[in-house]
Amino acid sequence: MRGMDHYLTSSAGSFKSTLIDQDIAHIARVMRPSMHGDLGGAILPAAYWRKRLFELLDADHLTNSQLCSIDDLLLQLDELCTKELAPLPVTTARPAASRDANRHRVRRKR
């Protein structure tokens, strides 16, 4: 029976590893779009994704590939958060409509 126990344990570990791989792939697919959201803001905030990723890190027996994938997703999350907090670029050029309106005003004065 020892062989059967080893098989069941190995099979359960393999199944759990597959679930972790699927969870990582799912997060990789939906994290960025859900943080961009819509006009109302993010659908799911960074805190939610950070919690999900740290829960994955707590799993037993992660492979090196899984650890690297989770680390990469955490880096992406940090980058997304940094971009959200970055100030909007300041431009000194006036919009084209404003320039055109001023050009017409100047022509009328002549």
Rank of each mutant, 00 (worst) to 15 (best):
A59T: 04
A101M: 10
A101E: 09
P33N: 03
H104R: 13
K109Y: 05
F15T: 04
A97F: 14
I24K: 01
L73S: 06
Y7G: 01
Y48S: 05
G37F: 06
P87V: 06
H36V: 08
I24A: 02
R94S: 14
K51S: 11
W49A: 00
D60W: 02
R108N: 09
L88I: 13
S10I: 05
F54D: 08
S65P: 01
N102S: 06
M4C: 10
A25P: 09
M35W: 06
L67F: 07
H104Y: 07
S17C: 12
L44Q: 06
A97G: 05
A28P: 03
D71M: 12
R29M: 08
E55T: 14
S34C: 12
R32S: 10
A93S: 12
A28K: 08
Q66V: 02
S69A: 12
Y7I: 03
Y7W: 07
L73E: 05
S69W: 05
D5P: 06
A46K: 02
P45V: 08
G41H: 04
L44V: 05
A86F: 09
T91Q: 08
R108T: 14
D5N: 14
Q22I: 04
H36S: 11
D71G: 09
P45N: 06
F54K: 10
L88T: 14
H104P: 12
P89G: 03
D21I: 00
D60V: 01
L39R: 10
R103V: 03
S98D: 12
Q76H: 10
T91L: 15
R99K: 09
D38C: 09
T18V: 06
M1P: 03
L77K: 03
T63Y: 01
D100E: 13
R110E: 09
M31P: 00
A25Q: 07
D100S: 14
L56Y: 00
A46R: 04
L53V: 01
C68R: 07
L8I: 05
S34I: 10
R2Q: 09
L75H: 04
N102T: 11
A28M: 07
R29Q: 10
R107T: 11
R29N: 15
A93V: 13
D23L: 08
A93C: 11
R94A: 09
M31N: 02
L62Y: 00
P33M: 02
H26M: 07
A25C: 15
K109P: 07
L88K: 10
D71C: 09
A59M: 14
H104G: 15
L73K: 01
I20T: 08
L74W: 02
P95N: 05
R105V: 07
Q76F: 07
D72E: 11
K83F: 15
R94K: 08
M1S: 14
F54N: 12
T9E: 10
F54L: 12
D60T: 00
A59C: 11
A86G: 06
I70Y: 00
L8M: 05
H6T: 13
G13F: 03
T63P: 00
L73R: 03
H26I: 05
G40L: 11
G3N: 13
L85V: 11
C81V: 15
H36Q: 15
H104L: 08
A96Y: 10
